[in-house]
């Protein structure tokens, strides 16, 4: 375990040095990402300025939802970039090279790239999260900080699982993989707002189909003042559901690798 972590850090170092070869492009990418995510929050703020409130949700509370989902997504994107570009790896035969090395395939794909430019989304998400938390009239406890970190961990698992699922599909098909964006980017877009505002069928898809509700909606409600004990419990358990989702995605991945090894394509 320790040895794998050390190796992972080496991979990260290699990936960082490779990215630093293109500095101007890197800075512009970070700025562009900061811009895109800022626009997203700006439009939310504009809507709140027009409408005042959203079915009992204030802007700062929505900001907490927004912050949690964007921080999780940014971390997952930075960590899981290898899964993101996996279809190209399979098409170009690079996955053979991975199988020729004496380490786990998922580990090597994960380690292949740590994408620093996601720091743009991360910074913006963190800023919004902190602003939302500061605007709550509520005595903060240490347990809240732990819950936030715990929720972010769950969110990283959730988005990581989506990336692994979509990479796994590449073992079967190379076409139409863009459809998974509906769940990843669509999930981020959806989770910026409280799930209870959506129509029931849609809510069901993002609660039971994929556990998006566990990324921010359930944990955030445990943070707000006057949360019922059931809500607090649900908030603390939610990240476990995300971890379980990640587990399922890894099982699917293994099935995909087995298929690759038996079909050779």
């Amino acid at each position: 375990m320790c040895e794998s972590l050390a190796l992972y850090m080496r991979y990260v170092g290699v990936s960082l040095r490779a990215q630093m070869q293109y500095r101007v492009s890197f800075v512009l990418q970070v700025l562009a990402q900061l811009g895109v995510t800022s626009i997203e929050f700006f439009t939310i703020a504009v809507l709140f300025a027009r409408f005042g409130a959203l079915e009992g949700w204030s802007l700062p509370r929505v900001a907490i939802l927004y912050g949690l989902v964007h921080v999780s997504f940014a971390l997952a994107e930075a960590l899981g970039r290898g899964f993101d570009v996996f279809p190209e790896l399979v098409r170009g035969g690079g996955f053979d090279r991975i199988l020729l090395r004496p380490r786990g395939a998922a580990f090597q794909v994960l380690a292949a790239e740590f994408q620093v430019m996601r720091i743009g989304r991360l910074a913006q998400g963190l800023a919004v999260l902190v602003w939302g938390l500061a605007a709550q009239e509520h005595a903060w406890a240490w347990s809240d900080a732990v819950l936030i970190a715990w929720a972010i961990l769950g969110g990283v698992c959730f988005f990581g699982a989506l990336m692994i699922f979509s990479a796994t599909l590449a073992f079967w098909t190379v076409e139409g993989l863009e459809l998974m964006n509906v769940l990843t980017y669509g999930g981020v877009e959806t989770a910026q707002f409280p799930l209870d505002i959506y129509r029931p069928w849609f809510r069901a898809v993002f609660t039971f189909g994929v556990p998006l509700a566990c990324v921010n909606y359930l944990p955030a409600q445990a943070l707000f003042g006057a949360a019922t004990p059931e809500r607090v419990l649900a908030g603390w358990l939610a990240p476990l559901a995300c971890a379980a989702f990640l587990g399922v995605s890894l099982l699917a991945w293994r099935a995909g690798v087995r298929r690759y090894v038996s079909t050779g394509s």
Binding site: L54, L177, E178, I197, Y198, F202
Partner: peptide
């Protein structure tokens, strides 16, 4: 087809958000 579905889905999300507001 994937692009078409994505855009349809996106439209639905945005309309539901406005609906709530």
């Amino acid at each position: 087809i994937a692009g078409f579905v994505t855009q349809l889905f996106w439209g639905l999300i945005r309309i539901m958000i406005f609906e709530a507001f």
